[in-house]
Simulated assay, not measured.
Amino acid sequence: MRTPTPADPAPAAQTPAAEPTAAGRIIELEPKDAPVLRSVMQEAFAEYTTDGFSYGTEHETDESIRAELEGSGRAAALVVDGAVAAVVKFHVEPETGLLYFWRLSVRPQHRGKGLATQIVRWLFDVAAAEALGGIACNVVPRHAQLARLYEHSSMHIVGEVEHVTPRGQTLTLLRLEGALPPTRAIIELREQDAPLLRAALHES
Rank of each mutant, 00 (worst) to 15 (best):
M1D: 07
M1R: 08
R2Y: 14
R2I: 15
P4H: 01
P4L: 05
P6D: 13
P9N: 11
P9W: 08
P11M: 09
A12V: 10
A13R: 14
Q14V: 12
T15S: 11
T15E: 07
A17S: 15
P20F: 09
P20A: 12
A23Q: 09
R25Y: 11
R25G: 05
I26Q: 05
P31E: 02
D33C: 06
D33G: 08
P35R: 02
L37Q: 04
L37N: 02
R38N: 09
R38G: 00
V40N: 01
M41D: 01
Q42S: 00
Q42F: 05
Q42C: 00
E43D: 08
A46P: 00
E47F: 07
T49D: 04
T49F: 01
T49E: 09
T49V: 13
S54K: 01
Y55E: 05
G56L: 09
H59G: 15
E60H: 11
D62K: 07
D62L: 08
S64L: 13
I65V: 10
I65Q: 00
R66A: 10
A67S: 10
E68N: 04
E68Q: 07
G71I: 01
V79N: 10
V80K: 02
D81V: 06
D81A: 15
G82E: 07
A85M: 07
A86F: 00
A86S: 04
F90V: 05
H91R: 05
V92N: 02
E93G: 04
P94A: 14
G97W: 04
Y100T: 02
F101H: 10
S105Y: 03
Q109A: 08
H110T: 01
H110Y: 15
R111I: 02
R111H: 06
R111Q: 11
G112S: 02
K113P: 01
L115T: 05
A116T: 03
Q118C: 01
I119F: 08
A127W: 00
A129W: 03
E130P: 03
A131Q: 10
G134E: 12
G134C: 11
A136C: 06
V139F: 00
P141A: 14
Q145I: 11
R148K: 13
L149K: 02
L149N: 06
L149V: 14
Y150K: 03
H152F: 03
S154C: 08
S154A: 15
M155Y: 00
H156W: 07
I157K: 04
E160P: 04
E162I: 12
H163Q: 08
T165Y: 12
P166D: 07
R167H: 09
Q169Y: 09
T170F: 02
T170S: 14
L171P: 07
E177Y: 09
E177R: 06
E177M: 14
P181I: 14
P182C: 10
R184P: 00
R184D: 06
R184E: 13
A185R: 12
E191W: 03
Q192I: 09
P195E: 05
L197Y: 08
L197M: 12
R198C: 05
A200T: 14
H202W: 11
S204G: 14
S204Y: 06
S204C: 10
S204R: 12
